[in-house]
Amino acid sequence: KMTIRVKGKELARRIAKEMKDRNLKVEIHEHGDEVILEIE
């Protein structure tokens, strides 16, 4: 399990899509400006 902190929703969406393309499970937690992606 891996956690990534990202500034900006646009970048977070791009990373999430990339991870889904690799068949990984992604959970997205938004905290205002910061987005936390949990990847399994």
Rank of each mutant, 00 (worst) to 15 (best):
K1I: 10
K1F: 11
K1S: 09
K1V: 08
K1N: 06
K1Y: 10
K1T: 08
K1C: 14
K1W: 12
K1Q: 06
M2C: 14
M2T: 10
M2H: 09
M2I: 14
M2A: 05
M2N: 04
M2P: 02
M2G: 03
T3M: 12
T3N: 04
T3D: 01
T3S: 08
T3V: 14
T3Y: 15
T3I: 15
T3G: 02
T3Q: 08
T3W: 14
T3F: 15
T3L: 13
I4E: 01
I4Q: 02
I4V: 06
I4L: 10
I4F: 08
I4N: 01
R5D: 01
R5V: 12
R5T: 08
R5I: 13
R5Y: 10
R5G: 02
R5N: 04
R5M: 08
R5K: 09
R5E: 02
R5H: 08
V6D: 01
V6I: 12
V6F: 08
V6H: 02
V6W: 03
V6Y: 04
V6K: 02
V6R: 02
V6N: 02
V6Q: 01
K7V: 09
K7N: 07
K7E: 04
K7G: 04
K7H: 11
K7F: 12
K7S: 07
K7L: 11
G8Y: 11
G8N: 15
G8W: 11
G8H: 09
G8S: 15
G8D: 15
G8C: 15
K9A: 10
K9L: 15
K9R: 14
K9Y: 11
K9F: 11
K9T: 09
K9Q: 09
K9V: 12
K9S: 07
K9E: 05
K9D: 03
K9N: 06
E10A: 12
E10Q: 10
E10I: 08
E10V: 08
E10R: 12
E10K: 11
E10N: 09
E10M: 11
E10F: 10
E10D: 11
L11F: 06
L11K: 06
L11I: 09
L11S: 03
L11W: 05
L11Q: 05
L11P: 02
A12D: 00
A12I: 02
A12W: 04
A12N: 00
A12F: 03
A12R: 02
A12T: 01
A12P: 00
A12G: 08
R13W: 13
R13I: 13
R13T: 08
R13N: 11
R13H: 12
R13C: 15
R13G: 06
R13Q: 12
R14A: 09
R14D: 03
R14K: 11
R14Q: 10
R14I: 08
R14Y: 05
R14M: 09
I15S: 00
I15D: 00
I15K: 02
I15M: 08
I15V: 05
I15W: 05
I15T: 02
I15Q: 00
I15P: 00
I15R: 03
I15G: 00
A16I: 13
A16D: 00
A16F: 10
A16E: 06
A16N: 01
A16Y: 12
A16V: 11
A16Q: 04
A16L: 12
A16K: 03
A16H: 04
K17I: 07
K17T: 07
K17W: 05
K17N: 08
K17L: 09
K17P: 00
K17F: 04
K17D: 07
K17H: 06
E18K: 13
E18D: 07
E18I: 15
E18H: 13
E18W: 15
E18C: 15
E18S: 12
E18N: 11
E18Q: 13
E18T: 13
M19K: 01
M19Q: 02
M19H: 03
M19F: 14
M19V: 03
M19C: 08
M19N: 01
M19I: 05
M19Y: 13
M19S: 01
M19L: 14
K20R: 15
K20E: 11
K20W: 09
D21E: 13
D21R: 15
D21A: 14
D21S: 13
D21K: 15
R22C: 14
R22F: 06
R22K: 09
R22T: 03
R22N: 06
R22W: 08
R22Q: 07
R22I: 05
R22Y: 06
N23R: 08
N23S: 07
N23T: 03
N23Q: 07
N23V: 03
N23A: 06
N23G: 15
N23I: 03
N23K: 09
N23D: 07
L24G: 02
L24S: 02
L24C: 11
L24W: 14
L24F: 14
L24T: 03
L24Q: 04
L24E: 02
L24H: 06
L24V: 06
L24A: 04
K25S: 09
K25V: 09
K25I: 10
K25T: 10
K25P: 03
K25E: 06
K25A: 07
K25G: 04
K25Q: 09
K25D: 04
V26T: 03
V26S: 01
V26D: 00
V26P: 01
V26H: 02
V26L: 05
V26Y: 05
V26F: 06
V26M: 03
V26E: 00
E27D: 08
E27V: 14
E27R: 13
E27F: 14
E27A: 12
E27P: 00
E27N: 11
E27I: 14
E27Y: 14
E27Q: 12
I28D: 00
I28K: 02
I28Q: 04
I28R: 03
I28T: 04
I28G: 03
I28L: 09
I28H: 03
I28S: 04
I28Y: 07
H29S: 08
H29A: 06
H29G: 03
H29W: 13
H29M: 10
H29R: 12
H29C: 13
H29V: 11
H29I: 14
H29Y: 14
H29T: 12
E30I: 14
E30R: 07
E30M: 12
E30K: 06
E30F: 14
E30S: 07
E30W: 13
E30P: 04
E30Y: 15
E30Q: 09
E30G: 06
E30C: 15
H31K: 10
H31T: 10
H31E: 14
H31L: 13
H31A: 11
H31I: 14
H31S: 11
H31D: 14
H31W: 13
G32L: 07
G32D: 09
G32C: 10
G32R: 05
G32Y: 06
G32H: 04
G32S: 04
G32N: 07
G32V: 05
D33E: 11
D33N: 08
D33M: 06
D33V: 06
D33T: 07
D33C: 07
D33L: 06
D33K: 05
D33I: 05
D33Q: 06
D33A: 06
D33W: 06
D33H: 06
D33S: 07
D33Y: 05
E34Q: 08
E34P: 02
E34M: 14
E34C: 13
E34T: 12
E34L: 13
E34R: 06
E34V: 14
E34H: 12
E34K: 04
V35D: 01
V35Q: 04
V35F: 15
V35K: 02
V35W: 15
V35H: 05
V35N: 03
V35R: 02
V35I: 14
I36P: 02
I36E: 04
I36C: 11
I36Q: 03
I36R: 04
I36T: 07
I36V: 10
I36K: 03
I36G: 00
I36L: 07
L37A: 00
L37N: 00
L37M: 05
L37P: 00
L37E: 00
L37V: 06
L37D: 01
L37G: 00
L37Q: 01
L37S: 01
E38H: 12
E38Y: 15
E38T: 14
E38G: 03
E38F: 14
E38A: 06
E38N: 07
I39Q: 01
I39G: 01
I39C: 11
I39P: 00
I39L: 04
I39A: 03
I39D: 00
I39H: 01
I39S: 01
I39N: 01
E40G: 11
E40T: 15
E40R: 12
E40F: 15
E40K: 10
E40Q: 12
E40L: 12
E40A: 10
